[in-house]
Structure formats: structure tokens, C-alpha cells
Amino acid sequence: MLKDLIEYIAKSLVDNPDAVKVSEIEGEQTSVIELKVAKEDLGKVIGKQGRTARAMRTILSAASTKAKKRAVLEIIE
């Protein structure tokens, strides 16, 4: 579900939604959500001064509180 949230946000923001790949690596307590986008879309998911990336992390941590999990977002180049 957390993965779906990030996937929805990323796909809605980029020019190449087909190039968006999200994978979730579940750990014992923390899962890592990896987001991969096309090179030219990197700026769109990071945003000015990282604002978009920060907003995604904020909303992700709220969603993971609700799911009683911990999740971190990694944006992969």
C-alpha cells in the first residue's frame, strides 16, 4: 500500500510514467521503498530544493504510522 502511494505520486508528476519503477524491500522493522524514474524526470520527483522529495517522505511517514510500520524513501539515480 505504501508502495502504491509513492507509485501514484511519482507517475502523476513525471513526463514518462512508464519509466517509473517502485520496489519495496521489506526489513524486519523498516521497509525501504526505492523509486526509480527516467533520468530527465529526476528533477520532477525531487523538486526545487528537494521540496517534492521531502513532501513525499512526509506523507509516506504519515501513511506508515497508520500502517504501524516504518518506511523510508530512496530515490535512485
Binding site: I9, S12, L13, G47, R51, T52, R54, A55, M56, T58, I59, A62, T65, K66
Partner: peptide, 21 residues
């Protein structure tokens, strides 16, 4: 409470992303 977040951080993040989308 969760939706608003500390100092309204979460609700602001949702608003920002919604506007971007």
C-alpha cells in the same frame, strides 16, 4: 492527528503534492 501532522506538516505536504499533480 496523523493527517495534519506535527505543526501541520503532513497536511501541507499533501496540499503541495496535490497542487503539483
Amino acid at each position: 492527528g496523523v493527517l495534519i501532522g506535527k505543526d501541520g506538516q503532513t497536511i501541507s505536504a499533501v496540499q503541495y503534492l496535490a497542487n503539483r499533480i
